[in-house]
Computed example of a mutant assay.
Amino acid sequence: MTLSEDGASLGEQLLEAARRNNTELLLTIKSELGNDQVKLSELINSTKEPINQNLALHFAAQLGNWEVIDILLDIEGVEIDPLNREGDSPLHLAVKYANQEPEHGTFIVDGFLDAGSDPRIKDVHNLKPVNYVNKDNEKLRELLESAEYAISMEIADDEQVEKLAEGQNDDDDDVGSASDSE
Rank of each mutant, 00 (worst) to 15 (best):
Q37K: 12
E32V: 11
E32K: 12
L144F: 13
S177I: 15
T47S: 14
A165P: 06
S117D: 01
K122M: 15
L63Y: 15
E5F: 12
A156C: 11
G105E: 07
S181A: 08
H125E: 06
R19G: 08
L10W: 05
D81W: 06
E138V: 11
E76L: 14
S9C: 02
N134W: 07
L14R: 05
A165W: 10
S179K: 11
N22K: 06
A56P: 07
L55A: 12
W66A: 13
K135T: 13
A165M: 11
N131C: 14
K139Q: 13
G11Q: 04
Q62H: 01
D171C: 11
E101N: 14
E24A: 10
E76G: 08
E42A: 10
G167C: 11
R120V: 00
P82K: 03
G77D: 01
I121P: 07
D173M: 11
Q53M: 12
I51E: 11
S31R: 13
L127R: 14
E5N: 13
L73M: 12
A115P: 00
D114K: 15
E162K: 13
A98P: 01
N65L: 02
V68R: 00
K163R: 15
Y132S: 08
D114R: 15
M1Y: 03
H92L: 04
L40W: 02
E159W: 03
S179P: 06
V175T: 03
E154L: 06
L83N: 09
K30P: 02
K122Q: 14
L144E: 13
G7T: 04
E142N: 14
D81M: 07
E49T: 03
D114A: 11
E76A: 12
T23I: 06
D170L: 10
D174L: 14
D74T: 03
R141Q: 14
Q53D: 14
D81L: 08
N99L: 00
N169C: 09
L14Q: 01
N99K: 02
E32A: 04
E79T: 07
Q37L: 13
S117M: 03
E49V: 03
A8M: 09
K48W: 12
I69A: 04
S146A: 15
D173Q: 11
I108K: 06
